[in-house]
Design a protein around this nucleic acid. Structure first.
Lengths: 225, 225
DNA sequence: CTGAAGCTTCGACCCAGGTCGAAGCATAGG
DNA sequence: CCTATGCTTCGACCTGGGTCGAAGCTTCAG
């Protein structure tokens, strides 16, 4: 028997649940009520949806006092959603482009735990251009000088190497249709952007808001135009 | 506005359609009738399903005489399905392992246009071990000696490089849960296996049937135990 | 032309499952 | 205690959409 992919797909097939999952692509854990608002349904309805998502192992729940927090189960789930976004952006191109744009979302956003959007694509290609990364048509490796550079920035490769997760991984950007950097290093970069206060995140949205000085600092650190 | 991923997911969420899509993971183009049998529904029902899949840009149709052939629209679609399979195999582990096994499917099968299953995982790790491939925790590159080796085998890298598709790409094997080789090179390897008659494919199944001599030839060529 | 095979359209049936109101539990904080 | 907030369960409603029989349309083989 093959595993039943329709069961998994069915979980995503409901608009309310899909909205919840997309909201969780921000990487944050959200409460049931927040997710119900995100999905545009009542708390009761959200509750049944969330139960299904947890039962289907797409989400993890964590009880905290009288709140219940939910997050994506896995990086694999985030990858699945990104894959769906890519195809959806492809086939619904016209609607997306003619619809109300969210320029900020297009410019910089969070993709699960790393940076995405125009600026992430720029970063990626700058790293490749300066020979810190090798991009062999869709596949990515950190060069020695890249390891050097990020080592000076304070990345602890020993620690990263211990996790199962690849250090470099490309993720196809659904808005830009070009690669950006995911993986452990991608996460590190986003973490730094947030911890240094170069950008902040608004509520539960995936959009990232760079401050002027933060954007300058980021661009100069990574030698972006 | 975000692209609507629930629309795409809904297309896969119907068991009949999911079965059709999985059948097409064999990489072959199949007729409407073949797919209706694969899905276990009547021709009428299959027809409406196929229309939806084509409208949703998951499939491409090609009319040939009084037959209509269907195939996956894109490698992206195949990737999406493999992602779903991975998660499904994960969460339905018990059912899969206790259910009726298909040992041949597990040993060798086609994944869209490249080799998958136990033997593909073995191949991948042998190539890494012998330094023809570099596997940096999930990301893959062909080494110079690897390019050399496959060059001697007759791979035309000039030609492969012209396609948009990456030459090496890893694909997580849903039965083995380890990497195997996809991408242009993965396709080349499968093509050779079939053209040299080392293995044959049964009807529309994804399983691959190696002959004894074919298996020996394959293993010796790639130095597998 | 006739018949058969492949595919599609139409119509009617049927049901899984999404939705919300109302009520029920649990936790936090006086 | 009591009350407010967060979440869940129950029940009733309703609709989207999957299913097949029947009939129609096209292409191929004589």
């Amino acid at each position: 028997m093959q595993p039943d992919i329709s069961k998994i797909a069915r979980l995503v097939a409901e608009p309310a649940r899909a909205n919840m999952l997309l909201a969780l692509m921000s990487g944050k854990a959200l409460t049931a009520t927040e997710l119900s608002i995100e999905a545009g349904v009542t708390a009761q309805t959200a509750s049944t949806h969330l139960k299904k998502l947890v039962d289907g192992d797409l989400l993890i729940e964590r009880k905290q006092g009288r709140h219940k927090y939910f997050q994506l189960h896995d990086y694999e789930v985030a990858q699945l959603l990104e894959g769906l976004l890519t195809i959806a952006a492809d086939t619904q191109r016209t609607e997306v482009f003619t619809g109300p744009k969210e320029p900020r979302m297009r410019f910089a956003r969070v993709c699960y735990d790393h940076l995405a959007g125009e600026i992430a694509v720029d970063l990626y290609h700058s790293l490749v251009k300066n020979n810190f990364l090798i991009d062999a048509r869709g596949t990515t490796l950190l060069t020695d000088s890249g390891e050097n550079l990020f080592g000076m920035f304070g990345v602890d490769f020993q620690q990263l190497a211990q996790k199962k997760r690849p250090i470099c991984k490309t993720c196809l950007d659904w808005s830009e249709r070009r690669s950006h950097l995911a993986g452990g290093l991608g996460k590190w970069i986003l973490d730094e952007v947030l911890s240094k206060g170069w950008a902040r995140r608004e509520s539960s949205s995936r959009s990232l808001y760079f401050s002027n000085s933060g954007l300058v600092a980021f661009k100069s650190k990574y030698k972006l135009a």
